[in-house]
Each structure stands twice: as C-alpha cells, then as structure tokens.
Design a protein around this nucleic acid. Structure first.
Lengths: 237, 237
DNA sequence: ATTACTAGTAATCGAGTAA
DNA sequence: TTTACTCGATTACTAGTAA
C-alpha cells in the first residue's frame, strides 16, 4: 500500500482524469483504456485492478454498467505529481507548441486581414503588416486540439473591432507565434470562428507557404507565445 | 525514438528538474539519483542512458565533472505531461479565492459604472444593474496579489468600450464573483487601472457595505469565477 | 569516489481463453 | 459484449564487478 502512484500507472490515471473521473464515475472499458495507453487489454485490466487495490480508484455500479472514479487518495496522489511539475515548470518561457497540417482555407481570411481597421492595429500591436491571406493549420490529434482550446483561456493581444458604412467587424485576440521554428506570425483567435477548435488561423508578414516551400497536408509546428501572468516570483510581501 | 517520456523515467526526470536541469546542467551522480528514486544505482544509470538515447537529456562536461541537462525535446515532453495534468486538475474548479481588506476608493467608480454605455452591457452580460459605486478590496499579501495578476491572463466577460460626445471609454473585462460567500457581483479588470495589482474593484446589484455591515479595514473574501475553456471533454480523436 | 557492463531475478506485458 | 485468469515472452530491475 504505497502512498504514491506507480509511474507505470500514470497513463491510465491520466486517461481516467481526462474522462472526468475526478468527480464522477466514468464508463471506461479495459479495451478502450488499453487503446488509449497503447497497451493490451490485459495490461489495462491489471492497471485498474492494481490501482483499485492500492486505493487510488474505486469501481461503482452505474445502473447496469459499472463506472470508475478516483478516490480522494487518488486525487491527492496525482495532485502531488502535478504540484511537483508546477513548481519546476511554472517559471518556464510561456510557450505552447501545437502541431498540425497545412490546409487551404476558403480564402475569406485574406479579405478580413487586409481591412484597414484591422491592419493598422496589427501593425501597431504585433509589429507587422500582414500578408493578405491566412496560413491555416488543421489540428489532427486531440492533444493539439486541447492545446488550442487552452488558448481560449488567455487574453493574448487584443485587436479591437470596428465598423464601416456597411457592417461591423468583431474584435480579435492574437498570439505571437513561430512557424516551424522559422517564421514569426500571429495566431488569430476570433470570438466565434467559422472553423472549430481544430484550426489555427495565422497571419504573417510574408507568404509563408512559399517561403517555407510548404503544400497542403505538410506537417507544421506552431509555437504560441502566451503572455506571462507572473512577471517574476520575487514579490516581496 | 518515442516522442514522449516512458512513465518509468518520470521520477528521474522529476529529480533532474528539481535540481534545475531545465535550463542549466546539474551535477547528479547515478548513486544519488538512485537514492532519490528508490532504485539501485544500476537502474538509475540505465535511466539516464535511455533518456539520453531518446534525446530527452544530454550530458555535458563541466570542468572535471559532468553535468546533465534536459534537451528542448525533453522539456517539451514534460510540459506535455504537465499541461495534461493542468487541464484535468487545475481548471476543474474554475474559482480563485482572493482575500483582502475593504477600503474606500476615491468615488470615481460610481461615475463610470452608472454610464449608460457600460450599464446596458452589465445588465446584458452579467445579469444585473450595478449599484452606483464600486466595492474596493485592498490586497495585503503577495499571494493574493499574485492571484490578482493571474486573472490578467484570463479573458473573462468582455464589456466593450464606447464613446460619447466628449470622450472615449475603454473596454473592461469582468469576472463574476461571490463576496464573503454571500453577495454576487462582478470584478472589473480594466486594462490599466489607476490602482495597481493590489486592488479589486467590484460592482454588485446592491450596496454591499450596508448589506454585509462592513466598514473600512474589514477582511473580505472574494471568490472569482473564471470561465471554463473546456465545455466538455468528449473530443473524439 | 565515479559510470556502466554482464548475468540472474523480479515485475510487467501479451496471447489465449474462461466466465 | 465485458473482465480477468494462466502462462510464456519481454522488459525492468539488482548484484557483482570492471574500468
């Protein structure tokens, strides 16, 4: 009866947490768990048994099926790991790396980006005049989409909305990014994009596709710079 | 050559991070590492070798001794783990509790809050018509100030700026709050407040001081609700 | 002191399969 | 369908020891 989770069990615990097993029981078959952690069904079954024996999870009846949820001991144990990581990583350069595939948008971005109301703000706030068109990255994995959604949480650089004689144009948040460790640009986070959470819309001072010699379907790495919340930790009391 | 750290190597990586191997090489003998992770010297040696082979750490000469540091690939890999934990653990209760002391502002807040351009938005977006005046809380400890600054990171509820015949009024972000577990209100986060990071400016539908019988200097607890970024976790891969 | 090899052992895993 | 057993294969470990 150890007090901390075995390292080998971490993937299983993570998957449980991802499904929300922190505060409610979730349905998770050993087969599905096996797929998620990249092991056999038998291994997954054993992981759950061991986690149960050590008191980190408990299985509960949910009508006909059964569910799994973390115990308070389990939550404490993961928390411990999390806090350790937080302490050592919190002071990190605040970047989020997202991977995806280049794809062509419907060309609508070019129109918006070249509007004067936005352009003057881009120039002032992010430091370049955008090439008339957006560089679109499709996110393939759920991990990347999760990172994308995480950005929704942050303020970023605020680009105000405006209106002309015809209509109004919404506000946009941006994040400075580095594409394939080479080209600087800015990720646009519109309040309600026509795409979902699986797309990055990026502007840059140049035509990125040509500069990097990329075509649709090529893998693209985007490093997003998140403004830091903690200037430094030396806040005297 | 996997892209993520083997679960069994996590304790070793954690120990390295704890010593600061994130940004500088650190001295760490296999014997010492072994003690820390509760394994034999030989196992520790193997862990380092494997982590090196997989490109997560690198060994560098430091004069006579050698040091170990994480590579960028290594840092990315731990970050990934950290973010996953963060998502499932920290974002769950999206509340931040801040403590401070009630104090009187210069009364300026009342003027702004009662402007029609703001009032109609408050009513629409946060659901009440604010009492003409702000409830000001002075943060005394560095912990609370840090929490306050952390809020700067979040989007909150967006209240647009506007202009009348005389001047323009800036945009404001708000967060719903609960004062002393009793009164609902909204924290105003102006882009550049005349106060610093040690003040909470709060509006509420009523005159909070009277309702709670508070006077200057009384301790106040404010629970800030941070909007969630992840509506639910059912993102199919 | 140190790191890392070899050899033997223990834990973990996957295939087959029962319930 | 599901979970979890046995058992042989694979991996992770320790002891001993070389360098």
């Amino acid at each position: 009866m150890s007090n901390s989770i075995k390292p080998t069990h971490i993937p299983a615990i993570l998957e449980l947490l991802l499904l929300g097993a922190k505060d409610r029981p979730v349905e998770l078959s050993t087969t599905r768990l096996a797929k998620q952690i990249g092991k056999s069904q038998q291994a997954a079954s054993k992981h759950l048994l061991e986690l149960e024996n050590e008191g980190f999870i408990e299985r509960v009846r949910m009508g006909y099926r059964n569910g799994v949820k973390l115990t308070s001991k389990g939550i404490e144990a993961v928390m411990k790991l999390y806090i350790q990581l937080k302490v050592v990583l919190e002071e990190m350069p605040p970047v989020i790396d997202i991977k995806g595939e280049l794809f062509s948008g419907i060309g609508e971005g070019a129109y918006y980006v070249s509007l004067h109301g936005y352009r003057r703000q881009f120039l002032k706030r992010i430091g370049f005049d955008p090439y008339p068109g957006t560089f679109n990255v499709k996110l393939k994995s759920s991990v990347d989409r999760r990172l994308r959604r995480e950005l929704e949480q942050y303020k970023g650089i605020y680009i105000e909305g405006f209106q002309d004689e015809h209509r109004t144009y919404g506000a946009v948040r941006c994040f400075k990014v580095l594409i394939n460790d080479a080209i600087e640009g800015a990720l646009l986070a519109t309040e309600r994009t026509h795409y979902d959470d699986s797309v990055l819309e990026i502007i840059a001072p140049i035509f990125v596709r040509a500069k990097l010699g990329l075509k649709d379907g090529d893998e693209v790495r985007v490093r997003v710079y998140v403004p830091k919340a903690w200037p430094d930790s030396k806040t005297a009391s």
